[in-house]
Design a protein around this nucleic acid. Sequence first.
DNA 1: ATGTTAGCAGAAAGCGCTTTCTGAAAGCGG
DNA 2: CCGCTTTCAGAAAGCGCTTTCTGCTAACAT
Lengths: 363, 363
Amino acid sequence: MSERVRPRQERQERRTAHRTEPPPPVTLHTVAAAAGVSPATASRALNGTARVREELRGRVLAAAAELGYIPNAHAQALASASNNTVGVICHDVSDPYFAAIASGVMRAAADQELLVMLASTFRDQGREIAYVSMLRAQRARAILLIGSGIEDRGWERALDAELAPYTRAGGRVAVVSRHRSLRVDTVLPENRAGAAALARALLALGHREFAVLAGPPELTTVADRLAGFRSALAAAGVPLPAGRIVRGAFTRDGGHAAALELLAQGPPPTCVFAVTDVMAVGALAALRERGLRVPDDVSLAGFDDIPLVRELTPPLTTVALPLHRMGHSAITLALREPRTARSRVERIPAEVVLRASTGRPHN
Amino acid sequence: MSERVRPRQERQERRTAHRTEPPPPVTLHTVAAAAGVSPATASRALNGTARVREELRGRVLAAAAELGYIPNAHAQALASASNNTVGVICHDVSDPYFAAIASGVMRAAADQELLVMLASTFRDQGREIAYVSMLRAQRARAILLIGSGIEDRGWERALDAELAPYTRAGGRVAVVSRHRSLRVDTVLPENRAGAAALARALLALGHREFAVLAGPPELTTVADRLAGFRSALAAAGVPLPAGRIVRGAFTRDGGHAAALELLAQGPPPTCVFAVTDVMAVGALAALRERGLRVPDDVSLAGFDDIPLVRELTPPLTTVALPLHRMGHSAITLALREPRTARSRVERIPAEVVLRASTGRPHN
DNA sequence: ATGTTAGCAGAAAGCGCTTTCTGAAAGCGG
DNA sequence: CCGCTTTCAGAAAGCGCTTTCTGCTAACAT
């Protein structure tokens, strides 16, 4: 037996020798030794995975508390091939839309003693894939992708290449508000139906001239909302000329710019639909800058019902989504047992909320 | 040698045997075998921790890519006693104040290839401590506590009891916007100075009758802002009667309720200062409900400059804090090398931003 | 008394990596 | 041509846990 083969005991003692610099880490071994039991028993006592005589159990628990023992999650994960973390990937937590969904996720996670790893992609596709990979490395129980997917074949394929082995290895994946090109559990708002219902409500107010401030066309959410809105207008025989669909980034400033662009094209329509509330916020500012009153000159509506739109003047008409609940649903869906073969889709109803930003058109 | 002692090789082979159910996990061993090298070499090649002959290096990398190898972060963390995760604890990500700070953290983390575990306490002290404990178990490189601390001896002590062993074991801790009762790195807004500057600006507008919508008195942020505001008034010989300080929860609705309470007490002051923008939002709504025009009847100011207050009508006068940068600073501060003995405090300047919600008092 | 069975605790084998440590081969000066 | 240092790859120990597996003891039936 060569010199370097030293039994664990010896190492343990060496550590315990008084050196002020590195404090001796408290491991299960330490606890077990202090309680006068084997590590196996200590583990069982601490986790309640098997019956342990009451007396020993008490000694272990006391020793653990005494020593301030904190189990090493990595060792646990490694040994038991399971852990209690989930990953959430979104574009930016400071966007109220994601923040609300994320909050729902965190709430659900807290109830289940899960730790959430949250990653922001800042709308960088490469970063999204990198994060999936990192979460795979962490052996996260589930990965949640939140936010509109882009219709980009190459990207979808790359993402799928990351996700497929993960699910095959037992990982759970759910997407929120993202079209289901990925064959995973999906929480999908009724974007089409919601936008259509909004269109009908606006038609009912008397509007016949519309414009849509749309996000990037490759975002599936945009496409769905636009399609729903347009089809409801079409059903009423109201045209939506191509020039009345203005694209902008999916941000406050994107909505602002799009609205300005619309106004530059000539006399405004009587009603503007911004496909997200965040864009609507920018649009409202732009309309005002151009001296237009809402809703007297132009009615404005959004989609999502993020909390802040209620505080605007006038409060924004929008299509409400239960954002908090969506986050909650996503994690529940992903972690449900038993794991079903087919992926499930949970459709989230969207409800039109008429507020003061829309009114009858002035003629 | 008993039957159960089987060398790794054998297990490996057994696994590879074709069973459709559990796909054989790709480990470093697999990769090494495929590349015809030892696991040690594969590890070195993959991580670049030591020189490896170019040819072998290529074979390893190729094999890893081919097999879709993803290292097990838990095993890595366990073996190397280090990992790339940081923990962030805040009250609620859906609060724009925290969301903005968190976003700054995520940005910095992304640049450093760190994974962020984000936990929301929902203002539950017990939960906060539980999360610290969980993050300790995860051996997070750093723990960031974001948000106003409560002056509660018992709680502080409990938190400190969790944090002290953590830092002693090499963990980094930083707090943001939280008083430094904890002896850790701190990112601290100039709450006092900011509130004082705001008070002076409001005095300069001609106001002499003020009210403050304050959050819970035990929040240090509240205490500081209130103190700063009050001292500036005192310096100008302007009184701030106790009755004009109304407490409310640190939320939109808290601000709303506090404002209503204030108005119920009699004729309103000419100027109201809400200690946070979130509360100001609620206050604005309340003032309006009571038929008061802002700023014509009452001027209103907040603190923080969260993005949404710019969208209000009228846009809110406030004291701006570089929220994004604060998040960034916190993580930078915590992870800076070398670890200095003394904890550092980074003071964040607060700047008064006058917007349309404040004006000269009408007499 | 003997043979079972059940209940519990300990030994030890790993989980999938990193990192010594060891040794072989190659490079060097004298 | 020999002893020396360097370089680089493999063996193996070990990170801190969980989880068989084994075996002891006590409890029960026969």
